[in-house]
Amino acid sequence: MKPAAFTYHRARDVAGAIRLLAELGDEAKIIAGGQSLVAMMNYRLARPAHLVDIGRIGGLDHLRGDGSTLRIGALTTHHAVEVATDAWLGRGFTLLRDAMAWVGHLPIRTRGTVGGSLAHADATAEWCLLAVLLDAEIVASGPRGTRTIAAGDFFHGFYTTALAADEMITEVVFPRPAPHSALLEFAERRGDFAIVSAAVDLDVDEHRAGRAVRGGRVALGGVAPVPVRVPEAEAVLAEGGQAGPDLFRRCAAAAAAAIDPPGDGNGSADYRRALTQTLIEDACAKAVSR
């Protein structure tokens, strides 16, 4: 399990990286933390002729909040988010921090990057799910300049995204989640890729007695080639109701009925539906409890 040969290029800055990507074309691949890519290269499932290492580019590992949004540099590691203080993250972004506990294990989180995770676009990756849930915007630079891609348009299919071969992610911008949000996953073992992951972001009217849900967002991973929002479940939340088991059960049921999940060695379609039911219910309950 030794990777095939490649030529190594170290980019000094974003412009340099883009120039290299443009020159080298499809034969090139960006490496940041490499936590997914190197494993695939060791299996020779990925065999880029050129690797463009962006790991040394300065100024891309930031966490910058302005109260309403959080800008995360592409080279920010999962672990940097995991240990970020409230002051760094800005109020209300604890959902992102808490979600990091689901990303593999510590030695993966210390190297893996936010940008790398989004670009790799695994159907169960936490960053992809969070981006879709919160309508994040992905900022990418290429020879034609910088553009911003809405998360909803970014993920195209299994490991494929809207990024062109000569583009790289520089930053992702997260709007602030609602105060009541949560991400939950299920896998057989601690740290495994989720069979199903679910994230919710609830709009709760705190002032009314009994706390009423006025709406919310629901996203799922592992039930389609890309992380998806579930409008049917969100419709249930939009109808509103008391924040409690009944509403959450109906919301989850709407999601479970709406999806058409794949079946594979990690779980049948039915099982994924059952997990969807459970995880959304539990995520809603967790969200309102915080």
Binding site: Y43, E188, R189, R190, G191, D192, F193, G265
Partner: peptide, 26 residues
């Protein structure tokens, strides 16, 4: 946790520890 299955072509299901689920401390 652990099992290797084979498909009809005789291909084993597990080529790595993602599929062959050796349990962890958790």
């Amino acid at each position: 946790f652990e099992q290797v299955t084979y498909d009809e072509q005789g291909e084993p299901s597990a080529t790595g520890f993602l599929d062959y689920k050796v349990p962890t401390a958790s």
